[in-house]
Design a protein around this nucleic acid. Structure first.
Lengths: 225, 225
DNA sequence: TGCGATTTGTCCGTATGTATT
DNA sequence: TAATACATACGGACAAATCGC
């Protein structure tokens, strides 16, 4: 991995791609709440584009899972059940364990320095206590490290698909609980193990880490049902 | 899992969905070879539909990975490298191991009978030696069992996305090597372990099984490079 | 129950941008 | 450089399905 990789994904040249980005950000930032219906004509007018590329962008977001489509009825921002969160966390555990197996031998000093830099960026944003949304992004950026270092393109794609859903959950959780964001020490062991020499210890910690994340994330569901 | 589940995915009501199915079958059956360029206007005329739903269907296949899109240049049927196959097999190993962990406690007698039925269907088609393409479908149907029984919808989706790519590789391999199809005894141990009581033994066998599958599948790449 | 309004799904014509020759 | 081919995008139109009255 080059240290410069994946700083900012360059803006897509096609209007469809740009619309995917705009809509995704709109949803995961919580600006359009879960369950809200989106009508093509209104949305197209609001975005200043025609229905063609908008429909294609919508299809992509449906595929990721952020939108759900009911033919001839409409498209809606996804609603979240307890089971959804449990499934994402369990699959994510398996994927991230696989990612660490794949990247374990590729952890160059530069790569590890990059990981620590991401951790510092996360704790810094948490300490500032002014940007909980940014903290969520930093946390996901931290977890993206193992996927990038793995060099496994298919695995990276899986993470790219999973990540917006996680971000959506986190933001929903945060909006339900006020300004929280991730805990400051939540990733200390994660970083230590990731930089250490015991792969099995890392894999075992991932189970705990995810279990803990699931428990805290899922609390906001209780209040909704 | 109900025994009747997932026999035939009902045909999609929208033209877009139907087109996705048609194009997917066209590609995984090998009727349009790897690397071939598809032009929208010609394809739309050939399919008897307009470019709107066709473009949406194409986007979906790009997302799955069967097509690759180069903006303003064109869309092409994917070409396969050795690395692609290695990545699919390694990720698939991780996913299928996870699937068996998830489904292990849910293996009712009915579910196990269903698994054995799929195995019988596979060996029967292999023995007939007249339908290698059907044999490939039956093999994938066999491997789909653990995903269905797991009851994990996200995991099932992952398999649904991975499966067409595998089918594409298998058919390419078969076309390069004449009428082969999967070996008859290749899944005997797989079935035994899946019906047994030792989860760890199943997981270990999956490593071997996939390693073996990778080795045989990858041979056709050698002849192309 | 039926009717009208709204929205999605689909088609077509046209214009523009990009790549290739 | 010009010309061709094609992907991309726009706008208008109609059909089909759904929903509310």
């Amino acid at each position: 991995m080059t240290a410069l990789a994946s700083l900012r994904p360059i803006a897509d040249s096609t209007l469809r791609g740009q619309t995917v980005d705009r809509l995704r950000d709109l949803i995961v930032s919580g600006q359009v709440g879960a369950g809200v219906r989106l009508t093509e004509t209104h949305l197209a007018k609001a975005l200043g584009i025609s229905r063609g590329p908008l429909r294609e962008a919508i299809r992509e977001l449906v595929d990721i899972g952020l939108l759900v489509s009911q033919p001839y009825k409409g498209i809606f921002v996804r609603s979240v059940t307890r089971r959804d969160i449990e499934e994402v966390y369990s699959l994510r555990t398996a994927l991230e364990q696989f990612a660490f197996k794949q990247c374990w031998a590729k952890r160059t000093p530069e790569a590890l320095a990059n990981l620590r830099a991401r951790h510092r960026a996360l704790t810094k944003v948490i300490d500032s206590q002014s940007d909980p949304f940014g903290a969520i992004e930093r946390e996901l950026e931290l977890h993206g490290w193992c996927y990038e270092v793995s060099g496994h393109t298919l695995l990276q794609k899986s993470w790219t698909r999973l990540r917006p859903n996680l971000q959506f959950y986190f933001v929903m959780h945060q909006q339900a609980h006020g300004r929280l964001g991730p805990r400051r020490e939540a990733h200390d062991v994660y970083i230590d193990r990731a930089c250490g020499d015991d792969l099995e210890a890392m894999l075992a910690h991932l189970e705990d880490h995810m279990q803990q994340g699931l428990k805290t994330t899922i609390t906001f569901i209780e209040a909704m049902e």
